[in-house]
């Protein structure tokens, strides 16, 4: 059992958790993920490790509460335990001294990009974090990222905070101004990562994307997370999660992400019904 030491709401729909997992905390590096199973009837699902404290033996996770599993996670309280946490899984994010690196993130990817920015900056790079949210209320970890990156750019879809627009527009301007990054890293919703890869392709900027494929075991056993990269089938869990964004078949991955939409909807309705029923009883 993996006890929750600290829990806080980052926004109405995202949650921050510090979880006891000493072995994972000791081994984990930026870009790696864990597989969680919340309870006995739960599914196995991946979450990127945002941070860890090897001394204290904890890892930090951030989740957007959108489906049954993440909502179950969001309902746990400090002192509660997660049934299973496995990891760290996947290859750590590469970090060499390339020069100038732009790290783009959207949605919950903003939490996941934090350790990557730290790692890449520690390798000697000038880091530009470019993060996006739908509106001001959904901007997360701003202070942490401001401290971690050399420069921080914030965009919102509705213009309520930072620049009005998309993260790719910031990158586009940086490139136009002649400040072409030596490398780009993107993590977040699929359309955003795809747009980043499309933007950097003509400039030949090496672009790494961190894929969030559907997984079951997370150890290479099932192939649920397969993705076509450069014409070859790869398993996101053991070959990734970072891949060359210019080689990823986003079209196929987008379709694969939608396999279980009807089931996910059914499961969520059922969960919310039972959750509201339980509240009535309390």
């Amino acid at each position: 059992m993996y006890r929750i030491i600290e829990k806080k709401k980052l926004t109405p729909e995202s949650v921050f958790l510090r979880v006891e997992a000493p072995r994972i905390a000791r081994r984990r590096r930026a870009g790696q993920f864990v597989i969680l199973r919340i309870d006995e009837t739960g599914e196995r699902f991946p979450l990127t490790i945002v941070d860890s404290d090897p001394e204290e033996g904890t890892i930090t996770l951030v989740a957007q509460e959108v489906g049954t599993s993440t909502k179950k996670l969001g309902r746990l309280k400090e002192g509660d335990s997660i049934l299973d946490v496995t990891g760290p899984l996947g290859h750590p994010t590469e970090a060499e001294n390339w020069g100038r690196v732009a790290c783009l993130a959207g949605g919950i990817g903003v939490a996941e990009v934090l350790p990557v920015v730290k790692e890449i900056r520690a390798a000697g790079n000038f880091t530009q974090a470019i993060i996006g949210a739908r509106n001001q209320d959904l901007v997360i970890l701003e202070d942490e990222l401001r401290e971690a990156a050399n420069e921080l750019y914030i965009t919102t879809d509705d213009g309520s905070y930072g620049r009005h627009g998309l993260v790719t527009e910031v990158l586009h301007d940086l490139i136009n101004d002649g400040a072409i990054p030596d490398r780009v890293y993107a993590i977040g919703p699929l359309p955003m990562m795809r747009a980043v890869a499309d933007l950097t392709r003509p400039y030949d900027i090496p672009t790494i994307v961190s894929l969030n494929a559907l997984m079951v075991d997370g150890t290479g056993m099932c192939g649920s997370c397969r993705v076509t990269v450069g014409g070859e089938t790869k398993f996101t869990c053991v070959d990734g999660p970072d891949f060359d964004g210019h080689q990823v078949d986003f079209e196929e991955l987008g379709k694969r992400q939608k396999i279980y939409i009807p089931q996910e909807k059914c499961s969520l309705e059922r969960f919310e019904l039972s959750a509201s029923g339980a509240n009535v009883k309390e």
Partner: peptide, 29 residues
């Protein structure tokens, strides 16, 4: 890699280990 093409490992793991045959009582579809 089309939707609806499984490895046997994934298909059987979903059903046996994750009890997908009891979906939606179990969360794995």
């Amino acid at each position: 890699n089309l939707n609806g093409v499984y490895s046997a490992n994934e298909y059987l793991t979903r059903v046996n280990l994750m009890k997908a045959y009891l979906f939606p009582e179990y969360d794995t579809p």
